[in-house]
Amino acid sequence: METALYIAFFIFGTIIGSFLNVLIYRLPRGRSPLKPAFSFCPECGKNIKWYDNIPVISYLILKGKCRNCGAKISLRYFVVELITGIASVLSYMKTGLSVEYIFIFIFLSLMIAITFIDLDFRIIPDELNLFGFLAGFVFIFFRKDFSLLDGILGAVVGAGFLWAVAFLYMRFRGIEGLGMGDVKMMAFVGVYTGWFGALFTIFVGSFLGALVGGLSAYLLKAEDKGRFEIPFGPFLAFASVVYIFFGETVKSWYLGGMM
C-alpha cells in the first residue's frame, strides 16, 4: 500500500511538473499560462498530442525530439517533471496524508519554477512570489506551532534584511547587486519559515552563491570578478528547501546552543 502511494504521489508530481514547464516557458515571456490551454512545440508551433505529452514517459519515448518537426526538446522539460515528481514524494514522506502536504508541495513546486526561470532570464515573476506569499498565510491557519505573528515577522525580516543589503550595495557601489524579485521571494519564504528560517535561507543561500560565483568567475576567468553576475534565486530556493525539511532540527540545535 505504501509503495502504491509513493507511485501515486510521484505521478501526481510529474503532472504538476508538466504545468511548471508551462509556467517556466510562458511567464517570463509575458504569456498567459492558461491560454492557449494546449501545449505546442516552440519550433514548429504545432499542437502536441496528448499521447506525446505524458510527463517523463513521452520525453523518453520521443528521445527528446518533437514528433512533428524533429526539433530537439530541451532536457529541462524532463528534469523539471522528474524533480517535481520527487518533490511530491518527499512532501508526502514529510507530512503524510494531510493538508500540510498541499502547502509543502506548493512551496517546493514554486521553488522549482523560480529556480529555472531565474537561471534562464535572471528574473523572478511577481505572480509566483505573490501566490507563494498568499499560500503561506493560508498555511498558517493549519499549523499548530506557528502563529500569524511568526509569519508576518518572517516576511518582514526576510524581505527587510535583503532589501537593506540591496540598498546598501547600490548606495556604496553604484550598481544593482540584488533584484527586487529576490526581496519579494524572501517575503514569501519568510511567511513559510518564520524569522529564523528567513535568516537561515539568506545566509546559507549567500554562502552558496558566493562559493559558486567565485569558483565560476575563476574558471571562466571573468575580467571583473567583483561584477560577475549569477542569479541569486536558485541559491535562496535551495537553502529554503533545506530549511523546510531540516529547519526545526537546525533551529533547536542553534537556539539550544545559545542558551
Rank of each mutant, 00 (worst) to 15 (best):
T14K: 00
M111L: 09
P33G: 14
I48Q: 11
S39N: 05
L62E: 15
M111Q: 08
F203T: 14
P36W: 08
L128A: 11
R26D: 15
R143N: 09
E229N: 13
T115P: 00
L128R: 04
D145I: 08
G64T: 04
E248Q: 13
L108Q: 01
N68D: 11
L97K: 05
I104K: 08
I123D: 15
R173H: 10
D52G: 14
A155N: 03
G17D: 08
N47C: 12
P125C: 10
G96M: 10
I230Y: 02
C69P: 05
F142H: 13
M111R: 00
M111S: 05
G257S: 06
L236K: 01
A159L: 04
M1D: 13
F161T: 06
F196P: 08
T3F: 09
G151K: 15
T115D: 02
P231Y: 00
A135M: 15
R171I: 00
S91C: 05
F238L: 12
E229I: 07
G132W: 00
D150S: 02
S74M: 06
L149I: 15
V89Q: 09
V165S: 02
A198G: 01
G158F: 00
L82V: 06
L60F: 08
K221R: 14
F139S: 07
A239W: 02
A198C: 03
L62D: 14
C44N: 13
P55V: 07
I123E: 15
T95F: 07
M258Q: 13
N47W: 12
Y218N: 10
Y243I: 02
L110T: 13
I16S: 05
E43L: 00
F107Y: 13
I114M: 10
E2D: 14
T193V: 09
S216E: 13
M186S: 03
P125T: 08
L97S: 11
V204G: 07
W50S: 15
F10M: 03
L255E: 14
T193W: 07
I102N: 02
L62I: 08
G197S: 08
A217N: 11
L220W: 04
L199E: 03
G17H: 09
W195G: 06
F200H: 04
Y243H: 10
F200A: 02
N53S: 12
M259E: 12
P36K: 13
S18I: 01
V99S: 14
L215D: 02
F137W: 09
T193E: 14
A217D: 14
V138K: 09
C41S: 11
N47A: 14
L108P: 02
V22L: 11
M93T: 11
N68S: 13
F103Q: 06
N129E: 12
L128T: 12
E223R: 05
M1L: 12
N68P: 00
I61K: 12
G17S: 09
L130S: 10
S240I: 04
V56P: 08
